[in-house]
């Protein structure tokens, strides 16, 4: 059974810290927040998915990406793409603190897989259109919710904080599904990098552009916010000088060590692609 968890404020905390706004939009679920603010000398859009204990879909009250969240993200990102059609492609910053996709019978029936795909599609389309899309991991980046909100970004940044974690399945659920204890799962994570939950272990996979150290993730001060802004600006600049695909995730020294198989598969596939 699901347990009552304390609702995370990381998403809204960082939206306020970076934009001085709450990002509530008329006609958009209160779980999806969008705010425009200056970043360096250009406007950027910041998007967060936040908990709402009164969400009309009960399975998406704890910061999950559910049906309306997925589609609302898609709408907001597509609006930004449409606005940038004839002018500057503004940066899009996804603030990521999502506990999971919404688990529910109604969600499945109504196609939560498509809702999440719609969000992923929109972010990927923005990236392909030339918007620098940066995901800033400030809390949980779990499974399908992360696929919908953040994982299509050009660059992934994360705060170095114990509550920042990435995984394919929540710890309790993964323990139940694999019939292991949580302690065993944690031990396995120490030995096998992709099994770990914490962000420092994730950084070893080479997927992160930067792990931002020494920032108070719960109550950021002026210096913390400044530091994160600088990291975002550097990531945006890096994006604009690079490819619009996700190839940078295979380029780091960590990726060459830990994702060697991913690189080897692509190398040999390219050799075999055209018939001899």
């Amino acid at each position: 059974m699901s347990t009552q968890t304390e609702l995370s404020a990381r998403g809204i905390t960082w939206l306020r810290a970076l934009t001085a706004q709450d990002g509530v939009l008329q006609g958009t679920p209160a779980t999806v927040r969008v705010a425009e603010a200056a970043l360096g000398d250009e406007p950027a859009s910041f998007i967060a998915v936040v908990p709402d204990p009164h969400n009309r879909f009960p399975r998406a009250r704890n910061g999950e990406v559910g049906l309306e969240e997925g589609w609302a993200l898609a709408r907001q990102v597509r609006k930004i793409i449409a606005a940038g059609k004839d002018g500057a492609r503004r940066p899009i910053i996804a603030l990521v603190d999502v506990s999971s996709q919404a688990y529910g019978r109604r969600e499945e029936l109504l196609g939560v897989h498509l809702a999440c795909a719609a969000a992923a599609d929109a972010y990927a389309s923005a990236r392909l259109a030339g918007h620098p899309v940066i995901a800033l991991l400030v809390g949980k980046a779990m499974s399908g919710a992360f696929l919908a909100h953040g994982y299509q970004a050009n660059r992934l940044l994360a705060l170095d904080s114990p509550e920042v974690m990435v995984h394919a399945m929540g710890k309790q659920a993964a323990a139940r599904v694999t019939r292991r204890s949580v302690a065993d799962l944690e031990k396995l994570g120490e030995r096998i990098a992709p099994m770990a939950y914490d962000i420092r272990a994730y950084a070893k996979l080479g997927l992160l552009h930067q792990l931002i150290e020494g920032v108070d993730a719960d109550a950021p001060g002026t210096a913390d916010v400044q530091r994160v802004r600088e990291a975002l600006l550097a990531a945006i600049a890096d994006t604009r000088s690079g490819a619009r695909d996700l190839s940078s995730r295979l380029a780091s020294p960590e990726a060459h060590a830990t994702r060697a198989a991913s690189i080897e598969v692509r190398r040999r596939l390219a050799e075999q692609w055209d018939a001899a």
Partner: peptide, 24 residues
């Protein structure tokens, strides 16, 4: 069934790459 839980984060990462490739 989706991500192979024994390869957890690398499964999730590559699924994002599959999504990216399909959209492109």
């Amino acid at each position: 069934g989706g991500v192979r839980l024994q390869e957890a984060n690398l499964g999730l990462a590559v699924i994002a790459e599959i999504h990216a490739a399909i959209v492109a």
